[in-house]
């Protein structure tokens, strides 16, 4: 059994890695967008502009932290905390590789791998609505409120098709434990058995992460900055942090559920395969941001309820029938 100390150490490692990845993502995203648009992107701070993240971080910390006069001060302060907490907490059950041997005893490469791991990730995903909607409400500003209403509606709508498409994978794997689901993809990733489910899950994941083309909660041309219009300094940075960590989380979930997790040819260690697959998905996220325009709001809702949800239910039915006949 794990001691409390070991769990705390693993938790600390996960947080440090995620926050570093967040900082690096902001730079890499700007560099990539630059190349997509035939620019150079940030290149003044450090080699290849890599220290831009540090410069940005310092700037966020020293900026004045403004709270609007009419804001609900308690909820205003609480919202970014909830956002970062839910984004980080999902990682308590995400494994990045098979257990490894350290000093003769097996060490699992996740903080915990409970039997209901998928549900835990979904539950924390459901909680992430709070940060966004409370931020918009507490700001007492039109743009922020509109942004947070859009965000809540969007997150609730796409959560449904996300959960339904995921059921197909759970049925095939016969387990809710993320480790078992990866083990079930030993020979063939579920991407090939669940192509429709993969597409629905990925689109919902983009919507859940509020990334282009689903970034209506913070559509800058209509809503200034959406739900975090009134936030400045470090509190604003916390929302950005939550968004990027969420992006890494959904990429990891797609990797674990559909791309075979850490399975791969033996010339690379399993953790490297996991990292590569997640990095590829993150690149697709940036790629989409560089190439796709934003949805119109009514189309976003129509697409979620009239296309994604029925397709997810069809996928579930077909999978259930196939699984029953095959088993």
């Amino acid at each position: 059994m794990d001691t409390v100390g070991l769990i705390l150490i693993r938790g600390a490692i996960v947080i440090v890695v995620l926050l570093t990845a967040f900082a690096m993502m902001t730079v890499i995203e700007r560099k990539m967008l630059g190349y997509f648009q035939l620019r150079l992107g940030p290149n003044r701070t450090g080699p290849w502009g890599l220290l831009q993240a540090v410069a940005d971080g310092v700037k966020f910390i020293v900026k004045e932290d403004i709270i609007p006069r009419d804001a609900d001060r308690l909820v205003f302060r609480l919202a970014p905390i909830i956002s970062v907490f839910t984004a980080l907490a999902a990682w308590s059950v995400i494994p990045v590789g098979p257990p490894i041997e350290v000093g003769g005893r097996p060490v699992p490469l996740s903080i915990a791998d409970p039997p209901g791991g998928v549900l835990v990730v979904l539950a924390f995903g459901a909680l992430s609505v709070y940060g966004v909607s409370l931020a918009g409400w507490a700001s007492q500003s039109k743009y922020a409120l509109l942004g947070s209403l859009r965000a809540s509606a969007q997150l609730i709508s796409y959560e449904l098709s996300m959960g339904l498409s995921l059921l197909g994978v759970i049925m095939l794997a016969g387990s809710l434990r993320l480790g078992d689901i990866v083990a079930a993809q030993d020979r063939l990733p579920f991407l090939f058995l669940q192509p429709l489910g993969f597409i629905i899950f990925f689109i919902s994941a983009v919507a859940e992460a509020s990334r282009i083309p689903f970034d209506l909660p913070e559509a800058e041309t209509e809503l200034v900055a959406g739900y975090h219009t009134e936030y400045s300094g470090m509190r604003y940075a916390m929302f950005a942090m939550a968004e990027y960590i969420h992006m890494i989380t959904v990429s990891s979930m797609v990797t674990l559920l559909y791309l075979g997790g850490w399975n791969g040819p033996a010339f690379l260690p399993p953790v490297a395969w996991f990292g590569l697959k997640v990095a590829l998905l993150l690149f697709v996220f940036i790629w989409m941001r560089a190439s796709l325009p934003r949805f119109r709001y009514d189309r976003l809702m129509d697409f979620g309820w009239k296309v994604m949800l029925p397709l997810a239910i069809v996928n579930l039915l077909v999978t259930a029938v196939a699984a029953a006949l095959w088993a």
Binding site: L119, L122, F124, A126, L127, S133, W137, L149, S152
Partner: peptide, 21 residues
């Protein structure tokens, strides 16, 4: 997990939604 998903994630969110609107 179901408690968090349904009661915290859905029911309370809908209440907040109603209050905000």
């Amino acid at each position: 997990a179901a408690q968090v998903l349904i009661y915290v994630g859905a029911v309370t969110t809908i209440i907040l939604f109603g209050i905000m609107l």
